[in-house]
Design a protein around this nucleic acid. Structure first.
Length: 333
DNA sequence: GCCACCGGTGGC
DNA sequence: GCCACCGGTGGC
């Protein structure tokens, strides 16, 4: 069983960003640095960034009291595997008004904000739910300083059904994919695709009766801002991708259209603590994301079933046009 | 034997 | 070209 690591802040004394009063940030960052931090965020409106606490074994507390905020995490170690993998370190959202980043205390709160961010844009005042005194006048909680991997998350992803958990697992750098999304059922089963969710629900109609629908599931993964995080498939494709990225960087989209979320994890495949002032010589250093990178297409309605599963489902009640029809409907996005 | 992680690719 | 999907497999 995988560890449930997301949702609370880990302990990491090396981090200097997460601090309710921001005093620590002030102590560690010069005015110039802070200004730079703010500037770097101003190119990335309305994002959510995530960090993953690997030390949390419960991680399910809903709102962490402000006083319980812990420093940002160091690199996480992947469960029982000896191989060290990146993992989400924290959750943060960008204020629509001041463009500063505000850390979100739990994954659950983050998922709630993410689901409705288009309808209810995040502002610093929103964070008063867990930080009563926060305002746009406070320094940013975190900045894109090159010490972490940043990735764009998708907006409007439904919160998982009650009792279910949505896991995002980062893959190691240089792989063919950036991350995987899994859903953990209330019974502990791991589902890794819409098809598997579909079949699980067919096999467990009690969830359907309880109102669980396919529209509550999304396997969309965030995109890393570090564009070479994922291995290219071929030289030709790599060139094509480079061109595409460059083009996007040169043609920003309208910020008004942007309501993306983003997510960050550490950059290095080590268990080194997060460096708040990287010299940039060894670790990849990231600039502020181009505005265009923050434009996230609306989530696809659903994945198409594979032929294999479609065939398998033929023995089930015929649902050719909309295989999920049995339980889909009211919650259709 | 289990399963987390990864690569490959069919299909859009 | 992208990505949803799933089979393979190495570490445990």
């Amino acid at each position: 069983m995988q560890s449930r690591t997301q949702g609370t802040f880990p302990k990491d004394p090396a981090n200097t960003y997460l601090d309710e009063t921001s005093q620590e940030l002030k102590d560690h960052a010069s005015t110039d640095e802070h200004d730079e931090n703010v500037r770097s965020c101003q190119n990335a409106p309305n994002q959510i960034v995530v960090y993953d606490p690997e030390t949390s074994d419960t991680g399910q507390a809903l709102c962490v009291h402000p006083a319980e905020h812990e420093p940002l995490p160091k690199y996480a170690v992947s469960n029982q595997y000896t191989k060290i993998l990146p993992s989400i370190g924290a959750f943060t959202v960008q204020c629509e008004e001041c463009l500063k980043w505000r850390l979100i205390p739990t994954k659950e709160k983050y998922e709630e904000i993410r689901e409705y961010i288009k309808e209810e844009p995040f502002v610093c005042a929103t964070a008063r739910e867990w930080r009563p005194n926060i305002s746009c006048d406070d320094p940013t909680d975190i900045s894109q300083d090159g010490s972490r991997v940043w990735a764009i998350d998708k907006p409007s992803i439904a919160q998982p059904p009650t009792g279910w958990e949505r896991l995002v697992r980062l893959r190691s750098e240089g792989g063919t994919r950036f991350a995987d999304v899994y859903y953990i059922t209330p019974t502990g089963k791991t589902l890794r695709s819409t098809v598997e969710v579909e079949n699980y629900l067919l096999e467990h109609p009690e969830f359907i009766r309880a109102g669980v629908t396919l529209s509550q599931f999304s396997f969309q993964i965030p995109k890393p801002l570090q564009k070479d995080y994922v291995k290219r498939r071929s030289y030709k494709k790599a060139r094509q991708q480079d061109n595409a990225v460059a083009l996007e960087m040169l043609i920003p989209h309208e910020p008004a259209e942007v309501s993306p979320l983003s997510w960050a994890g550490p950059t290095q495949s080590t268990d080194l603590p997060i460096v708040t002032r990287p010299d940039g010589s060894s670790a990849p250093c990231f600039e502020a994301p181009p505005v265009s990178d923050l434009v996230v297409p609306p989530p696809k309605k659903r994945a198409r079933p594979s032929k294999k599963y479609t065939k398998k489902l033929r023995d089930e009640p015929k649902v050719k046009e909309k295989p999920q029809q049995a339980w889909d409907g009211a919650n259709e996005l």
